[in-house]
Amino acid sequence: MEDDKRTAAEAVDAFGRAAKLVVRAFDERLGDRGVSTPRSKLLAEIERLQPVRSADVARAVGITQATASTLVDALVREGLVMRAPDENDRRAVRLSTTDAGRRQARDWRADYTAAAHEMLACLSHGEKKQLTELLTRLGDHLA
């Protein structure tokens, strides 16, 4: 049992280190565009889910609603996202991308995919699929 606990701690440490390095690598890659990984993912998710409520897109990206609100405000100011009233709930707002936002989301998604491919080049296709399955199971367990 102690060995299993020690192995779990080592796995969490390795995961935490890798997660930080992955985020840093994405930020460096997407930094050329002047955006962070959460912001680019937020725009891409708005584009994918639109029209979408802020709370729903925050949940999809894995950030707090307050963080999403701050990022959405910046995306609106830049003309990449627009707000519209929710037809079913007068208190709610739906987010959609503008034409410029759709183009930017497409470009960010291409950069994100290319960066992910480069970062995981040390793994075979099967290992990438296995890693995805394990991380998805871990995320579902922790959610």
Rank of each mutant, 00 (worst) to 15 (best):
G79N: 00
D27R: 06
R24T: 12
A18C: 10
I46C: 05
V23Q: 07
Q65T: 06
E28V: 14
V72G: 04
P51C: 12
R83D: 11
K41H: 09
Q50P: 00
I46E: 07
M82S: 13
A74I: 00
A44Y: 00
R29E: 10
A25M: 09
V35P: 05
I63Q: 05
V57I: 12
M82W: 03
L49G: 10
G16I: 14
P38A: 07
R17H: 04
S36P: 08
R83A: 11
A66L: 15
A25E: 05
S36T: 09
S54G: 12
A25T: 10
L30N: 15
R59S: 06
A74D: 09
D73E: 09
A68M: 06
R83T: 11
L71E: 07
E45V: 03
T37H: 03
P38F: 02
E78W: 04
D56R: 09
R33T: 09
P51V: 08
G79H: 03
S40R: 07
R17M: 12
R77F: 00
D27C: 04
F15L: 14
L30Q: 05
V22Y: 07
F15T: 14
S54N: 14
A66K: 11
A66G: 02
R53A: 15
L49T: 08
V81R: 02
E45R: 05
L43M: 00
I63L: 01
L49A: 04
R17Y: 12
R83W: 02
R48T: 08
R24Y: 13
G16W: 12
E45G: 06
G31A: 15
R77W: 12
T67C: 15
F26Y: 14
V76Y: 03
G31K: 11
E45T: 04
P38V: 09
G34R: 11
S40P: 05
A18P: 02
E28Q: 02
A14Y: 14
V35Q: 02
T70N: 00
A14V: 05
V81Q: 02
I46Y: 01
F26C: 11
E28N: 01
L71M: 15
L42G: 11
R29H: 13
L42H: 10
G62N: 15
F26K: 14
R24H: 14
A55L: 04
A55E: 07
L49N: 05
A60W: 09
K20F: 11
A18G: 13
V81L: 07
D73V: 05
V81D: 02
D27I: 01
P51W: 07
L49Q: 06
E78H: 05
V23K: 11
A55I: 06
T64R: 11
L80K: 04
V23P: 14
A19M: 12
R29I: 06
D27V: 08
L75G: 03
V61R: 07
F26G: 13
K41E: 01
R83K: 04
I63P: 02
V35E: 12
G79W: 04
S69G: 15
R53W: 13
G31I: 13
Q50D: 04
G34Y: 02
R59N: 07
K20C: 14
R59H: 00
G31S: 13
D73P: 11
L80P: 01
L43Y: 08
V35I: 13
A19I: 12
T37D: 07
I63F: 00
R83E: 10
